[in-house]
Write a protein that binds this DNA or RNA. Structure first.
Ligand SMILES: [Mn+2]
Ligand SMILES: [Mn+2]
Ligand SMILES: [Mn+2]
Ligand SMILES: [Mn+2]
Lengths: 217, 217
DNA sequence: ATTATTTTTTAGATAAGACTAAAAATGGAA
DNA sequence: TTCCATTTTTAGTCTTATCTAAAAAATAAT
């Protein structure tokens, strides 16, 4: 698998959230910031390699083999993110681009040793689950903060839009994985919220609360 | 810098042992297991990028910029080797190929954090010095074991030929960096040695003793 | 059912990096 | 100096991964 091939497999995997749906050429090209014609080329190649099932004009879906490879790229990406944050003290807004490179390092042994070194983490620094070596994911039950009602208490379990600026915004306000959130008030008009997060009061717009996953306590 | 460009710069750097000598196209091609014609192409490109001074038919030498970049690739390679051995418990015969990939990860911040995480090591698992961020190397005074005389005591400081099989041979006999070696006897005929290494007696051929660096005690 | 619009594929071009085969330069021997 | 063997470069081809522009298919709108 070349680096480009791996990136395509991962993109299909992420676009379908690990499910076995089909992905259109355009969607794939957009995600990879490339052109649809390039995606078509690659899908044909991946089809020949039996990594995807590709039907002209109908998009592509991962084969079992392709899905497994994709899951292992995601596994590596997230394990490396844990390493960078836990061991090298990077902020959660600084690790994505580096993990984007590290995920392509080839050595099955390395992945398993890294996993052990990190005490087999189940989620990455953004709360995203880490697939195991068979590609299985332990799904945790999480909902969006915007769907919480006043007086509810919940714990921050993940970030939906892991844009660097958003992550930086959160950590600057000391909001992090595990933070305990109590919804104090919800404005019906614009669905903005007043919330208590770890004993601090914050005013949160709808766009913020739509990008935070929580687990009700 | 592409991966290929970095590999060429590193190869020139290593072939001249960090000195500023010229390297021939053939020597370079051999080191990189490629063809001289490919090396010529790359040298012309690196010359255009001012990374080497290349004169047709006369070989190439690193520019200050090229030498600095090369030193940082070597720095990364050796830091990652330390990480793999010290933190992930790899054997010293298992890390080269993985470091060969990791050395191309681009993130200045990462290198410095990794260095700190490892307590700023000065040598890699094979005893080779790690350049600092300016490319400076702390030279340690080491000689070959084959040049030691009977009754001398010395400490193992490095391996010359870091071939995997040789490394495995050594660790299997529990010979490692820091081992204390006393030369008991030296056979004039084939220059083989009887040595005591960490309280164990070993018979060592000339080819072995020529590939072990020691520091007299 | 025809058009029109959007999506997708093909055709052809480009750049990096490697290769083979052939030409040119170099350095040593006669 | 002249010839020869070796080294090095050039010329042309190949693969991977991209792009643009044009053709074809699918979808949506009359
Ligand atoms: Mn990421
Ligand atoms: Mn992540
Ligand atoms: Mn190495
Ligand atoms: Mn080494």
């Amino acid at each position: 698998m070349t680096r480009a091939e791996e990136n395509y497999l991962k993109a299909i995997y992420q676009l379908t959230a690990g499910m076995n749906q089909r992905v259109s050429t355009t969607a794939l090209a957009e995600r990879l910031e490339t052109k649809p014609s390039s995606a078509t080329d690659m899908l044909q190649k991946l089809h020949d390699k039996a990594m995807v099932k590709y039907t002209k004009y109908k998009g592509a879906q991962l084969s079992p083999e392709g899905r497994h490879i994709a899951s292992q790229i995601v596994r590596k990406h997230r394990l490396w993110e844990v390493f960078l944050v836990e061991k090298l003290a990077f902020g959660w807004d600084q690790v994505h681009d580096i993990a984007e490179q590290l995920e392509h390092i080839k050595s099955p042994d390395l992945v398993e040793r890294l996993d052990a070194f990190l005490d087999c983490p189940k989620v990455d620094p953004h709360g995203d689950p880490i697939p195991d070596k068979n590609g299985n994911i332990e799904q945790i039950n999480k909902i969006l903060l915007c769907d919480q009602t006043p007086n509810s208490r919940s714990m921050l379990m993940g970030i939906k839009d892991t844009d660097d600026a958003f992550l930086k915004y959160l950590s600057q306000k000391n909001i992090k994985l595990g933070s305990v959130i109590t919804v104090l008030d919800k404005e019906p008009f614009d669905e903005s919220m007043t919330v208590d997060i770890d004993q601090n009061t914050h005013f949160i717009s709808k766009i913020i609360s739509t990008n935070i996953y929580v687990q009700p306590l």
